[in-house]
Amino acid sequence: MITKEEVEKLAELSKIRLKETEKESLRLDFEAILSYIAQINKVSPDPPEESGSLGVNLMRDDGRPHESGVFTEKLLSQAPSRERNFIKVKKIL
């Protein structure tokens, strides 16, 4: 039902590097899990409408912004690599 190539594709989409030995055991895990969760397809051929989200999502008015830069040092101090007030990464393009 799920192939080794699909496992490799999922790993690449997830940006996770797999060892060769993991691929088969993950494939078997996915087969078991997917065949279990696929039982929801038996519920009804005509699934009920997707209704709105659960609970609430309250937005507040803009206002009372904190002073610019007060958290910068605290947050940047956690970055693995930085240059002045920037996070440093390798060349992207």
């Binding site: 997830s14 940006k15 996770i16 590097r17 947050l75 956690q78 970055a79 693995p80 690599s81 996070i87 990464v89 390798k90 060349k91 992207i92």
Partner: peptide, 21 residues
């Protein structure tokens, strides 16, 4: 990139793969 551990890969995207290992 932002926090936690970074593992160096060959290029930018490879850093992701190596880190998320």
């Amino acid at each position: 990139v932002k926090y936690g551990r970074r593992e160096e890969g060959g290029d930018f995207f490879d850093d992701y793969r190596a880190t998320r290992r």
